[in-house]
Design a protein around this nucleic acid. Sequence first.
DNA 1: TTGTACGCGTTATCAC
DNA 2: GTGATAACGCGTACAA
Lengths: 352, 352
Amino acid sequence: MNFDPLIMKPKLTLKQIARELDVSVSTVSKALRDSPEISDETRQKIQAFAKLYNYKPNNIALSLKNRRTRTIGLVLPEIVHDFFATVITGVEEVANKRGYNVLICLSNNSFDREVMNLEMLANGSTDGFILSVAKETQQKGDYHHLQEVISQGMPVVMVDRVVNEIICDKVIIDDSDGARDAVQHLIDNGCRRIAIITTVDYISVGKLRTEGYLRALRGNDVELDEDLILKIEDVDNSHEAISQFLGAREIDGVFAVNEQFATSAVKALLNKGLSVPEDVLVFSFSDGELSRRFIPSLSTVNQHGADMGAKAAELLIDRIEKTVTDEEYQTAIVKTSLVERESTQKRKKATV
Amino acid sequence: MNFDPLIMKPKLTLKQIARELDVSVSTVSKALRDSPEISDETRQKIQAFAKLYNYKPNNIALSLKNRRTRTIGLVLPEIVHDFFATVITGVEEVANKRGYNVLICLSNNSFDREVMNLEMLANGSTDGFILSVAKETQQKGDYHHLQEVISQGMPVVMVDRVVNEIICDKVIIDDSDGARDAVQHLIDNGCRRIAIITTVDYISVGKLRTEGYLRALRGNDVELDEDLILKIEDVDNSHEAISQFLGAREIDGVFAVNEQFATSAVKALLNKGLSVPEDVLVFSFSDGELSRRFIPSLSTVNQHGADMGAKAAELLIDRIEKTVTDEEYQTAIVKTSLVERESTQKRKKATV
DNA sequence: TTGTACGCGTTATCAC
DNA sequence: GTGATAACGCGTACAA
């Protein structure tokens, strides 16, 4: 046992300070908040004591009293994708700037986990939350848990993987336009037989990116060959599927809807004896470390994840603090931008 | 305005249920907790009502009453590294399994942010936290904020980037051994002039990995050439430094302490006209998506981030729940393992 | 200038 | 079997 305050000083409460200095709790409270009601002498005595023992008000008590936690929730399907990691960064930055904590929950793309996450967050732990819907949830199409918390008056902002049926603030990117621009870029650089490696259609963003691909082909009178469309169901074992797919087809361009698919594609093309970008141009989606550092570095559609996260946090906190005068729900669209790198810059073939 | 409960049902409290059913608050509380004191009739009536309107107890009130939040904090220096992302996954999984939420704060490697984060987490929001120290904090060597919260009785577990001066539970990997094994592997495969690309020494893990490199050289009577050691200060602009360094030296092996350095090294070697692994073998540290998908895929020392996070969460929650009978603080060492990939598998040179 | 009383939502204890 | 009361820590309206 050691009572030396430098060694062991348990958390202080107002009550303890009051007892120690022989005043009432409310006097301490007022003194610490610089109330003019309290005499200079008392105030200074109390403040000095509080500082010495490093008094900090208890957040939980404040939350209960004020009926607000100054905490926002963030529910993500996964995190080992650079994209979601950057979303966290954006959310966290804005939240902290505006005095909020961020409570992160991972659904691991599981519907049940997502339901549990929402229940937790809605039980008073947070003032509202940001959600990117789990894959399984999009597949099931069951959104009652979302409807539930929203009907309880909890502000919700959906980001990236959104659900049209649910009415709330949303932050998305122009997936379709971004994809169209990328494919347009391939066409402009001479590609005519462009394969797309995408996800199954129930993933909202995969579907939209496929649409963009189709639009680009149509807009340039490039013939659509259904055989050049690969829709991946199982992302974890996608490499083999991509390898077979590309091995059996004559193409001069690839558009992949994420970095994983793009790198698999490059590898498959190399194995086939082709060069990127000399023989085949490759465009990726979702700008992360992988695209930047890959050899050849990958041209990508930048999703600006941090911007999306930041925007989502702004929308949410505005909603929480009711500074949104207009009651209408917003759908903010963050513009993508193309980042051109080596994988689409044709070098002179002869000199290689 | 719409009072249809299916459209809008604000959160219920015990008090509201009590008023609605004309009983007392304590009766409601007991009925919902299946207390035998309450008659079947009353109990069923109350439970039915609570279920219909989806009553859930308020977490904040429970936290205040029980003096425990069932929330743990996680303070990380950055997140766009696969390693820390996997740590989050591990922490989150264990925490959820044991009924805890995870509050994530990013220090962005800033000392000030870290201090703020700790203050927030220590003000009642969490029952304890896991911390990986910010770069700037290690540089300053100022740990009073950590000492502070620990002396308040808040359980703390440090992970990966730990501080020896602070006494608490820790989870680290055998950085030095992992590095030694990697370099040993290079030596076993014929390398004699092995460069190391590492961080400045105030980063604890960088220093340890450098030690492992030195031990491997000594253990094999490979001459140490100080000129083959590159210590990076500014990670963001490391590529240029690495390029110059490798460009000017004759080497047959590279050991890099992270994926970023390793990929920069490969690129620099290619630019120099060398092949990996034909001319130079490259071993990396920290097994992430980048290493797996890079071409050539990179041999790495796997840090098992998810395991480290899981272990840290176990230690922390044990400490919180006082199931640790032994009062001694533990330092758990998660073993690294070598993952051998293309970057160190010498193919027959002639056939290339 | 200081202290008392109340309420945030919950549960435990005790009285009826 | 049910209800009133106190307590968790805080802030504030109001009373002294």
